[in-house]
Computed example of a mutant assay.
Amino acid sequence: MSYTGPGFEPPPARRSRSRLLTVALAALVPGALLGWAVYAIVGGSGDDKGGGSAAAGASGSAGSSASASSRAPSSAGGSASGESGDPDGGKPGGSATSGSPSDRASSSAPAGSGPLKGKVVVIDPGHNPGNFRHTAEINRQVDIGTNSKECDTTGTSTNAGYAEAKFTLDVAHRMRALLEEQGAAVKLTQDADRPFGPCIDERAEIGNKAKADAVVSIHADGSGVGNRGFHVILPGSVHSGAADTRAIVGPSRELGERIAGNFVRVTGNAPSNYVGDGTGLVTRKDLGGLNLSTVPKVFVECGNMRDSKDAALLTSGAWRQKAAQGISEGIVSFLRG
């Protein structure tokens, strides 16, 4: 997506007493409000690439997992990815690589014990590293209830060629490891295990058929230089054609708020300075991945790949681990009520 907005004003420097104040707040302030409170106190340095993380004191933290990133496949699509016009994903119909959503989804190992035992989480890594080789297929129109849209896009990339599709898979792998440690059964909508896709409608169907307790679609934005920060996209109330989000608007907002609060707290990064009026929350009715969902679902735009400061974070493995942890802890908080 591409937006214009005011330039980013760097937050004030961290103060030496910030850690003590953060711990105190962690005991006093629940839910999404905690994230913004901590950000206001510690200054929310957007340039932190993995130094002292506030995540150490998080309730139910799954900790770091080096094995998660080691499973990430390499991406062939880095230099070919263009700026994304839509954060949805994609798959063409009638492909020999397609199949039922339950067949195509990449499932986790059997869930173990933990606070999320019995819960199903679907992670939707935006786009696919191979999409750029299949532009005709991903340009095919699909029905999203309110209108038709492209099956998918290639996604965006940093100016140096680090592809959004590679970023989303890496974060998804890290999230899968963290959530499985909490006992959840985790499914990915794609794991670079198909030439392209799936389409936005099939991505939604995968979550629906899994009867997921939560679905999170992972993305990075392609906005203008100076536009910084993350935002969480929530489904608006849509009742048109095949789309009916009325039952999921409320729980999806709660999921989004908890993710946003934990993302700020764990990463120390500010919400977007160009959409969401500083809340980190944006409601949209034009995304098929949300419109066609029948289970709680949100999109997370983790940062802006076209801004050099955000790009430095997005290309850091240490920061991606923190992003995965912040999102995962938001999911845990939502599912545990």
Results as ranks from 00 to 15, higher is better:
1 M>C: 14
4 T>R: 15
5 G>Y: 10
6 P>K: 03
12 P>T: 09
19 R>K: 09
19 R>E: 15
22 T>K: 13
23 V>C: 00
24 A>G: 14
27 A>K: 10
28 L>G: 13
30 P>E: 13
36 W>A: 12
40 A>H: 13
40 A>P: 00
41 I>W: 10
46 G>Y: 04
46 G>R: 06
52 G>L: 14
52 G>I: 01
54 A>V: 07
57 G>E: 13
58 A>D: 10
58 A>G: 06
63 G>W: 12
64 S>G: 10
65 S>T: 14
66 A>C: 12
67 S>V: 10
69 S>G: 15
69 S>W: 11
70 S>C: 03
74 S>C: 12
75 S>E: 07
76 A>G: 14
78 G>T: 03
81 S>R: 07
82 G>K: 09
83 E>L: 13
89 G>Y: 01
90 G>H: 06
92 P>H: 08
93 G>A: 13
93 G>I: 04
93 G>P: 10
98 S>L: 10
99 G>P: 13
100 S>D: 15
101 P>W: 06
106 S>H: 14
106 S>Q: 12
108 S>V: 08
114 G>P: 05
117 K>A: 15
121 V>N: 02
122 V>Q: 04
122 V>I: 05
122 V>H: 05
123 I>D: 09
124 D>Y: 01
126 G>H: 04
128 N>R: 11
128 N>P: 10
128 N>T: 07
132 F>P: 00
133 R>Q: 14
134 H>T: 03
135 T>H: 05
136 A>V: 12
138 I>G: 01
140 R>Q: 12
143 D>C: 03
144 I>L: 06
147 N>Q: 14
147 N>V: 05
147 N>M: 11
152 D>V: 04
153 T>K: 03
159 N>P: 00
161 G>S: 04
161 G>N: 00
170 D>K: 07
171 V>A: 02
171 V>S: 05
172 A>E: 07
175 M>Q: 10
176 R>T: 05
180 E>A: 06
182 Q>F: 08
185 A>H: 06
186 V>E: 02
186 V>R: 01
187 K>D: 07
196 F>V: 10
198 P>S: 12
200 I>S: 08
202 E>F: 04
202 E>M: 07
207 G>I: 00
210 A>C: 00
213 D>K: 03
214 A>S: 08
215 V>P: 03
215 V>A: 02
226 G>S: 10
227 N>T: 07
230 F>Q: 01
233 I>S: 08
236 G>V: 02
240 S>V: 00
247 A>H: 01
251 P>A: 02
258 R>G: 01
259 I>Y: 10
260 A>T: 13
262 N>R: 15
264 V>E: 14
264 V>H: 00
264 V>M: 11
265 R>Y: 15
267 T>D: 06
271 P>S: 02
271 P>Q: 04
273 N>I: 08
277 D>I: 03
277 D>N: 15
278 G>A: 00
279 T>Q: 07
284 R>Q: 13
285 K>E: 13
286 D>H: 11
286 D>S: 15
287 L>F: 01
288 G>Q: 03
289 G>H: 04
296 P>W: 08
298 V>N: 06
303 G>T: 07
304 N>S: 09
306 R>I: 00
307 D>T: 05
310 D>G: 07
311 A>K: 08
313 L>S: 11
315 T>V: 14
320 R>I: 10
321 Q>G: 15
322 K>W: 03
324 A>Y: 00
325 Q>C: 00
327 I>S: 04
329 E>H: 14
333 S>T: 10
333 S>L: 02
334 F>H: 05
335 L>T: 01
336 R>V: 00
